[in-house]
Write a protein that binds this DNA or RNA. Structure first.
Lengths: 328, 328
DNA sequence: GGCGAGAGTGTAAACGATTACATTGTTTGT
DNA sequence: ACAAACAATGTAATCGTTTACACTCTCGCC
């Protein structure tokens, strides 16, 4: 492996000079710089990031710890974060916790050990407790989910309003017997349920049902089947994330329920499949690109100025109306 | 930051002893070990991985460089790799190249600079040329796509057979006017096209069409629209990856073509949406879990024994018959 | 002509671990 | 009883950088 010593020798200077040429942060005679750069390209030298990171006690990496890499929402976020980080010369380490607090702890420790400059993170609900310990160790930005602390930067969707708007859309289109399926793994589900109930109250209605369940296709399916077999069957189903939407849709199909004439269906997040099925699904779309980019920018701000006062950015979703919620 | 020195001081031993307790690779008096472990947990000490990596000239990280993190096939692979690596105490750095040779080079360099133990990698077609340079620098395992070299471990699908089987399925069900859409970004598309043509030849048929296009939904859509408007319209469409399948499906719907009675559709890879649409899509499913796991195992073998002769593992796909290819 | 400022460079000490080598006891075999 | 082997530990070099400090010139200025 060619090191800075080899370059120094080849250029006839000290390693300090080579380092200074690389960092470009000190006066160097033009001719010396030439020689060093020449040696560098001659030897095909690449600085060792490990050594640099050890010495500088920091690195140009940020961590992205999400709850499920297979969830399209998070891969979209990942892409946005990566692009934004890349522009600043940072690389991204991506990990997923699978909504598992143990893995969460493991990966946050790993991030710390890897000396990352900061972490973008979507915490499980259990996390709030152990949070402060980590927050002290490195810059953090939390996305998608609320952490019960004022001491932290967050990028969130205005979930209550988004759910309110989505629910109101159903009500305006004439649906009256609404059922809600909400994920129980995150704070997101709770907030969306609040918006759901608020909209119903404005219409002086009660929900037919509201269930907090594990955010998996299977749970969405099972719960929907039960709803449909119930004597008081809903005429519209509200789901708080795309996996539940998928499960509900599958159940409606298996039960041969016509959508939306018998039962309408709405959910969150744009997905590939949402507009391919029949009818396409009405969704509240989250601005994934903006969420990822904003989180990255906040993180960089905090890295540069650790004592800056914390900020919470709340973004709006966009209602995308399709066939699954057509006028009754 | 608490370092090994603090632990040594607290336990009244030298740093060497602490290190030996940690590595567990030398005889230590039980009582001393106790004291050291006590000090470690007292101080909440965690070894600095950066320093360890610098000294040892290696690390417990592997890189996973894929062409699109948003492609469900690759996220599934990612998950499998992560699980397998975790079992060995390794962590995974995931990056995506977006089929872009520049990004590919960037990330491979990054992996090298990060001192990863090895890389699992799905190369673009342009990559073969510059390949040997990288192969020399660190252990490699190539997945999904062929690299023109005997000097490398690979985990591949038996693409020709898989495509042959999928095509034969269409032919057995009575379809005769087949069109094929193949991705042009990887070797995979080419191999699948070979299987497609081979099956047709066995039936003494010619394809109605065979297009190599960019593996994006939009291209799949546009090309399918053109096929459907052509005077010699196919009665079945074969797609070589799930993005093209999605595009083709969308086109069939927009053109209000009944599937499969007017035109059948088959593709590769199981996806969430493939079984939610109407009709569900017949696919050749790839064993993603097995691909990821095998690649990881091969990588570890090579890390342990760099001079071992290279191996190519070829896995079989599974035909999953659904409604989109029903008997004519 | 002497002095301060700054340009330009080198020397060597970090960063936090691992490990070759040295050292000191304690067994063990003959 | 003595050499050899080994257990148990410490000392210090090392990995590849960055950077504080020191040094030497060369100016410009009084």
């Amino acid at each position: 492996m060619t090191s800075i010593k080899d370059v120094a020798k080849a250029a006839g200077v000290s390693t300090a000079t080579v380092s200074r040429v690389l960092a470009n942060n000190a006066p160097i005679k033009a001719e010396t710089r030439e020689r060093v750069l020449e040696a560098i390209s001659q030897l095909n030298y690449r600085p060792n990031l490990i050594a640099r990171s050890l010495r500088a006690q920091k690195s140009a990496k940020i961590g992205l710890v999400v709850s499920d890499i297979r969830n399209p929402f998070f891969t979209a976020i990942g892409r946005a974060v990566e692009d934004a980080a890349y522009e600043q010369g940072y690389s991204v380490l991506m990990c997923n916790t699978d909504e598992n607090p143990e893995k969460e702890e493991l990966y946050l420790n790993l991030m710390h050990d890897e000396n990352v400059a900061g972490v973008i993170f979507s915490p499980t609900q259990q996390f709030s407790a152990s949070f402060n310990a980590y927050n002290a160790k490195m810059p953090f930005v939390v996305i998608d989910r609320v952490v019960n602390s004022k001491e932290i930067d967050m990028v969130l969707l205005d979930n209550v309003s988004a759910a309110y708007e989505l629910t109101t859309h159903l009500l305006e289109n004439g649906y009256r017997k609404l059922a809600g399926l909400f994920g129980d793994a995150s704070t997101t589900g709770q907030e969306r349920s609040r918006g759901f109930h608020k909209a119903l109250k404005d219409y002086q209605l009660n929900p037919v049902a509201a269930h907090f369940i594990s955010p998996r296709i299977k749970q969405g399916y099972d719960t929907t089947i039960a709803l449909l077999e119930n004597s008081n069957r809903p005429d519209a189903i509200f789901t708080s994330n795309s996996l539940l939407t998928a499960g509900a849709f599958q159940a409606l199909r298996d039960k041969k329920i016509s959508v939306p004439s018998e039962v309408a269906l709405v959910g969150f997040d744009e997905t590939t499949w949402g507009e391919l099925v029949d009818p396409p699904i009405t969704v509240m779309s989250q601005p994934t690109e903006e969420i990822g980019r904003t989180a990255t920018e906040l993180l960089f701000q905090r890295i540069q100025e650790p004592s800056r006062s914390t900020k919470t950015v709340i973004l709006k979703g966009t209602l995308i109306v399709k066939g699954s919620s057509g006028k009754k």
